[in-house]
């Protein structure tokens, strides 16, 4: 276990707080008025999945988590687990779905992801920031609706439900921001 000053915590850091690993979702600095710098974090407890906020003076020390990140390929999911294969040594990993339910619709067979282990337990599945999906279902565009920015519902081959612009049709590919679940652009290929 090592320590860092709270001022050097970054988005994506892993911290050990109250004996539990936490992932830093957001980090903001404040120097109120004539005061000292303070960092406010939005963090996720990787054991419980709970998101909370933490305020720490930047000069205070915080424990970091010794985590191991592995590059893996997604194979399949059964009722309880996701199954991955290590891209380097072909070892297989079974990761319980519980706690990672929201990742389900971003996992594509054969695609590469990284998993984060702490104390031999998988505590996070990292997605690429943006991913391409096929649109397999999309609502019909409403005729005559030409207002800019109008969206409709669509579903990808992985079951992800997204809002897309009305010109997107079934069979087209779209780029999706995996952090927000929002449509980014149409992929013309």
């Amino acid at each position: 276990m090592s320590e860092i000053k709270a001022g050097s915590i970054e988005k994506g850091s892993f911290l050990l707080l109250k004996n539990a690993p936490h992932y830093v979702i957001e980090r903001e600095f404040y120097t109120p008025g004539k005061g000292t710098a303070i960092v406010r974090l939005k963090i996720k407890n990787l054991l419980t999945g709970q998101t909370l906020s933490e305020t720490i003076p930047t000069s205070q020390s915080v424990d970091t988590c010794e985590v191991e990140e592995k590059s893996v390929q997604f194979m399949y999911a059964d009722d309880h687990s996701y199954h991955f294969m290590d891209n380097v040594n072909y070892e297989q990993y079974e990761v319980p779905i519980e706690g990672f339910e929201e990742k389900r619709h971003y996992l594509k067979e054969g695609d590469s992801y990284s998993i984060v282990e702490w104390n031999n337990k998988v505590i996070n599945i990292n997605l690429p920031p943006k991913m391409v999906f096929n649109v397999v279902e999309a609502e019909e565009a409403v005729r005559g609706n030409t207002v800019q920015g109008v969206t409709k519902n669509a579903v990808t081959e992985t079951g992800l439900q997204i809002k897309v612009p009305i010109f997107i049709k079934v069979g087209e590919k779209v780029l999706v921001n995996t952090e927000t679940g929002e449509y980014v652009e149409r992929i013309n290929k």
Binding site: Y30, P32, G33, G35, T36, I38, R40, T55, I56, P57, Q60
Partner: peptide, 16 residues
Amino acid sequence: GKCSSWEDLWDWLFVD
């Protein structure tokens, strides 16, 4: 938060 001075704690509470 752990703050040793009144001023630091006031700042901490302001941010939190």
